[in-house]
Simulated scan of single mutants.
Amino acid sequence: MYRRLLIAAIIISGLGYLFALADENMMMRWIFKPGTIILMILLAATIRNVSKPYKNLIIIGLFLSAIGDCFLLLSGKQWFTFGLVAFLFAHLAYVAAFVTRWRFSRYHLLALIPIAAYSFLLLNRLHTDILVGGNAGLWIPVLIYVVVISIMIWSAVISRSWIAVTGAILFFMSDSLLAWNMFVTSISWAGYGVMISYYLAQFLLTKSIERSKKNVIAYENYSSIR
């Protein structure tokens, strides 16, 4: 019952941020933007009988994301960079989580083709516009960030969780829209598109914790046989 209430609270909080964004209410944005992620952390904490390493790493990723959200609410290139770094470490936490479910197959190498192609095309355009826009100092952080989030998507593929893969892809789409709106061309609906895809991504990554029940059961059965 309490989990359903948490999910309802997450939806209400996420919608609250969208309304605060439309109303340009900064106080409400400070409450709802990181608050929605904190509610997801609470939801993750209520999931029982799952792989603790995976669960804890996802929670760490969510916590770092909440910190990144706060930095991005502040104006200035330095705060954007801090937010970028916070999300960079969040993605590394997600990569570490997916590695705990590592089930590699040589066929997974094929997934690198669309991931690398999209990342290359995005970086190629961002490189030009970042330099032309006088933001040369942000190019290396953006480059590293795109590489890491690409690795995150591939790691999700290898974990063989469609929920995690969908969440990772949505995260990249959200960040791509954010970067495009910031460095390439202004998009009127970008703020809403970024946050809707971002919240969906984080929610799916949170829900992906539940899949690890099978790993726990399999390990316990193996241990009992031994």
Score class of each variant (00 low, 15 high):
residue 3 R to E: 07
residue 12 I to Q: 04
residue 15 L to I: 00
residue 20 A to H: 01
residue 21 L to K: 00
residue 23 D to N: 08
residue 24 E to V: 01
residue 25 N to M: 06
residue 30 W to T: 01
residue 32 F to V: 03
residue 32 F to G: 00
residue 33 K to Y: 07
residue 34 P to H: 08
residue 38 I to M: 14
residue 38 I to L: 15
residue 41 I to H: 08
residue 47 I to N: 00
residue 51 S to K: 09
residue 60 I to N: 04
residue 60 I to R: 05
residue 62 L to C: 06
residue 63 F to A: 15
residue 65 S to E: 11
residue 65 S to M: 07
residue 66 A to K: 04
residue 67 I to F: 07
residue 68 G to E: 01
residue 69 D to E: 07
residue 74 L to E: 09
residue 75 S to R: 12
residue 79 W to P: 04
residue 79 W to I: 04
residue 82 F to A: 14
residue 82 F to T: 00
residue 87 F to E: 00
residue 90 A to G: 15
residue 90 A to V: 14
residue 90 A to K: 03
residue 91 H to S: 10
residue 93 A to F: 09
residue 94 Y to C: 04
residue 96 A to R: 12
residue 97 A to Q: 09
residue 98 F to M: 11
residue 99 V to L: 15
residue 102 W to G: 06
residue 104 F to P: 13
residue 108 H to E: 06
residue 109 L to Q: 11
residue 113 I to R: 02
residue 118 Y to E: 05
residue 120 F to G: 13
residue 121 L to A: 11
residue 121 L to V: 09
residue 124 N to S: 15
residue 130 I to Y: 07
residue 131 L to R: 03
residue 134 G to P: 09
residue 136 A to T: 11
residue 139 W to Q: 05
residue 139 W to Y: 10
residue 139 W to E: 05
residue 146 V to D: 13
residue 146 V to K: 04
residue 146 V to E: 12
residue 153 I to E: 07
residue 157 V to T: 05
residue 158 I to K: 13
residue 160 R to E: 15
residue 160 R to W: 12
residue 164 A to V: 06
residue 168 A to K: 02
residue 170 L to P: 01
residue 171 F to M: 05
residue 172 F to C: 07
residue 174 S to L: 04
residue 175 D to Q: 11
residue 179 A to G: 09
residue 181 N to L: 07
residue 182 M to D: 14
residue 183 F to D: 04
residue 183 F to W: 09
residue 184 V to R: 03
residue 186 S to I: 09
residue 187 I to T: 05
residue 188 S to H: 13
residue 189 W to R: 00
residue 190 A to V: 02
residue 195 M to R: 00
residue 195 M to K: 00
residue 196 I to A: 01
residue 199 Y to E: 01
residue 199 Y to I: 01
residue 205 L to W: 02
residue 210 E to T: 10
residue 215 N to D: 13
residue 216 V to T: 11
residue 217 I to R: 14
residue 222 Y to W: 12
residue 223 S to F: 15
residue 223 S to A: 14
residue 226 R to G: 12
